[in-house]
Amino acid sequence: MFILILGSVLALAHVYVWKRLVKDTTRPGRGRTILTVAMSGAAALLATTLFGPRFTDVAESGWLAWPGYLWFAVLGYLLLALLILEPVRLALRGWVRRGTPDAPVVPDPPAAQLDRRVFLARTTAAAAGVASVGLVGYGAATALGPPQVLQVPVRLGRLDPAFNGFRIAVVSDIHLGPLLGRRHTERIVRMINETDADLVAIVGDLVDGSVEKLGHAAEPLQDLVSREGAFFVTGNHEYFIEDTAPWLRELERFGVSPLRNENTAIRRGGAAFDLAGVNDVAGQRRGDPPDFDRALAGVDPSRATVLLAHQPVLIDEAADRGVDLQLSGHTHGGQTWPFQYIVDAVQPSLAGLSAHRDTQLYVSRGAGFWGPPVRVGAPPDISVLTLNAGR
């Protein structure tokens, strides 16, 4: 049903964009035919990119994904720009009617003879095209550039003062796949190691494919360096592949410890805090749901608890259980404006640090992207949380 709805929306979007950019701006003839064929080809490319791997045995590959997803982003911003300009076009209808000549239309008139309707259509089309291509270019440069390294101080009331200055490097939504590979992982590992963190938390959506396809791309994770180790919890994309278990075994081989509804004590001398992790809510479809009872079994109520949970929506249950700090990702910070407003409406937090009753929630914007390789208004990040005792 979702695929049917998405396909219908994309088809209507292509028809609308074709009308405004091709039909309204050209005369019948060769030019319009060429542009119509090009638009039809772009629509077929996007359909193949989005739906081909789901209905055929053809694996998603970079040579198809790059142009397909970039067109997806351009189409989205073209649609948005044209809709924004629509009131302007409608407001100028009277001016267009007054200026339309009575003379017959010739196939390719010189610019001086263009009637006002075509002039207005071409002007709005050009404005929409420049705006959309500019935004996608800027967004691609942001998405493919190095993540920001954010320094975030966090105070926890139950944290033992022995952990003052303890640094947790948080990274989420790396999204290894046809567009992001080994070099992406190598850069993230290098940047995390440069932070000199005490502990690394990878909070889900590491991969968009199987170990056989992406194991080589994830291999640099074995070079992560931190005093207390690296830990991982599943995201929803880990459940989009056929079997999640091989990835958990592969991560253990890399020296990254999955927390599968379980916890471990992090110690410094005689002091400790509890680090717990829950499976993503998408695991419910596989009989592997988040289980707070198991994840928090045996934690010491006198000391701080830090929870790794991919989706921020689990914060209410974390707060009910007295968790001090939840570390999440999933939102991508919205990834592309104005999509942030939709994400913000369905998540308790879009990005950054917030308080939910007595529990603090930190949401990373993620270090990768999903779908179009574009980020507008939501740059990628690696966050370093520095813990201190007190409120």
Rank of each mutant, 00 (worst) to 15 (best):
A345K: 08
G333M: 09
L361K: 01
S349L: 13
D358M: 10
S349H: 13
D358H: 15
L353D: 06
Y341Q: 04
I342P: 06
S354K: 10
A351K: 01
Y362T: 02
H356K: 14
Q335K: 05
Y341C: 04
S349C: 13
G366P: 02
P338I: 01
Y341K: 10
S349N: 14
L361M: 12
S349K: 13
Q360G: 08
A355T: 15
I342S: 09
R365W: 00
L361F: 11
D358R: 15
P348L: 10
W337G: 01
L361E: 00
Q340I: 03
F339P: 11
T359M: 04
A351D: 07
A345R: 14
S354F: 10
L353F: 03
D344G: 12
Q340G: 05
R365D: 06
S364A: 01
V343S: 07
S349R: 14
S364N: 06
A367Q: 02
W337P: 03
F339E: 00
G352Q: 06
T359W: 01
G334Q: 07
L353R: 11
Q347Y: 13
V346C: 08
V343E: 01
A345N: 15
L350E: 12
A351V: 04
G333T: 06
A367S: 07
Q360L: 13
V363T: 02
P348H: 09
Q360M: 15
D358Y: 10
Q335A: 09
Q347P: 05
T336I: 15
Y362D: 00
P348S: 14
P348D: 12
H332A: 11
L353A: 03
P338S: 05
H332W: 05
R357A: 15
G352D: 07
P338T: 10
V343Q: 05
A345Q: 08
V363L: 12
P348M: 11
Q335H: 11
Y362E: 00
T336R: 08
S349E: 15
Q335W: 03
G334P: 00
T336A: 12
T336L: 03
